[in-house]
Computed example of a mutant assay.
Amino acid sequence: MGAALVGRPHAVVCGITAVRLLGFPGGEPENPAEPVHLLLPPRLTRAQPRGIRLHFTELGPDEQVDLAGIPVTSPARTLADLVLAAPHREAAVAEMDAALRSGAVPNLRAAREAAAGRRGFRPTQDWWPLADGRAETGLETRLRLMLVDAGLTPPQLQWPVRDASGQSIARLDLAWPEHRLDVEADAYITTSSAEAFHLERLRGNLLAALRWTVLRFSALDVAWYPEGIVAAVERVLAGPAVRDQEELQAS
């Protein structure tokens, strides 16, 4: 890192390098061959040295911070860069959700201002209001956006459920409390232990006893069967009377 800055007094660490220095959550694992990303004023040379990826633009007065003597793009500017570079809406909103949840940024105001007017900003304008720092995983974000697009916006995220004694028994990913519907984003974990399996089954039984309907969807469901997810949620939200009538007609 220090070597990349030598001889470049105007350079500011940016991009994925800034993400790692600032401790942003998520992202791809660090690659030893990954170049150091630096931002320079447009007037300087455009040559790309080996092991360094140079970017050229002017920073605003509040878009740079000092991190133990290393100039780095501010958290807001770094998030703006991530959003503008995201390949699609789901990835961009997942970045925003993660930054909010981790506290990397307190809100999106400064990040949105740092993105405004830059190349690629126009398509992202409607994405910023979709962010929600309560999302715990990228899969939760993708599942939530799918339901929002279908007109099924979950009223609550990370909704706490308590038993009759007031003891907490679960915290639900996406919840419709009025309908007692819980939609869970199931991340596939190969190291799941017998204890984790037992606790998950106990949680499901406790929710069932309180008459909650639990729908669980994996990344494969989200990628391959979005229509099935929407149909399942719509069916539960339709209410028992509608479901009973449908079953009677089908019999």
Rank of each mutant, 00 (worst) to 15 (best):
A223E: 15
A209S: 11
A196M: 13
A194E: 14
A164F: 10
L100W: 01
Q167F: 11
H179S: 07
E227T: 12
N205I: 09
R89S: 07
R216V: 05
A115F: 03
R119I: 06
L139A: 01
L108A: 08
R101Q: 12
T213D: 14
A91Q: 12
L147E: 05
R203H: 04
T124K: 04
A164H: 15
L172D: 07
A116P: 06
D173R: 01
V214C: 13
G204C: 13
S218W: 00
L220E: 13
R216H: 10
T153V: 08
R118I: 02
L172V: 05
L145D: 04
S165G: 15
H179L: 05
I169V: 13
E200W: 09
L143F: 05
V148M: 14
A86H: 02
E113Y: 08
L220S: 10
R109N: 07
W212C: 01
R109P: 08
W224G: 07
E140H: 08
V183D: 04
S165T: 09
A170L: 10
E195V: 04
D182N: 12
A94V: 04
F217P: 00
A208P: 11
A209C: 12
A185H: 05
R134S: 02
M96Y: 01
L147I: 01
W224T: 15
D97L: 02
A110P: 12
P129S: 09
L210G: 07
R216Q: 09
R162F: 15
R89Y: 03
G120K: 13
A98H: 03
H179Q: 11
H198D: 13
Q156H: 15
A116K: 10
T124Y: 07
L147R: 00
D182V: 02
T191N: 11
L152W: 07
Y225W: 14
L139C: 07
N205D: 14
A170Y: 03
A223V: 11
S192P: 05
E136L: 12
M146N: 03
G166T: 06
R118V: 09
F121I: 06
R216L: 07
L220Y: 08
Q158V: 06
A170P: 04
P177Q: 13
R211Y: 14
L174H: 05
T191E: 14
T213C: 11
P154M: 04
V222A: 14
A194G: 10
V214I: 05
E195A: 13
P87M: 10
R144Y: 04
S192E: 14
G133L: 05
Y188R: 09
A187M: 13
P155A: 01
A223L: 14
A111V: 11
A111R: 05
G138E: 00
A135Y: 00
R134K: 03
A114L: 03
L210I: 10
A185T: 02
G166Y: 12
E227L: 10
E178H: 12
L139D: 06
A92C: 04
A92L: 02
F121V: 11
D97H: 03
T190C: 08
I189G: 09
A92P: 06
A209P: 01
T137Y: 09
Y188I: 08
A115M: 08
T190I: 15
R216F: 01
E95A: 13
D186T: 02
A135M: 00
Y225D: 07
F217Y: 06
E113D: 10
L100Q: 07
A150C: 10
S165Q: 15
I189H: 15
R203Q: 03
S168Q: 14
A135L: 02
L157C: 00
F121S: 08
D163H: 11
M146T: 02
A150M: 12
I189F: 15
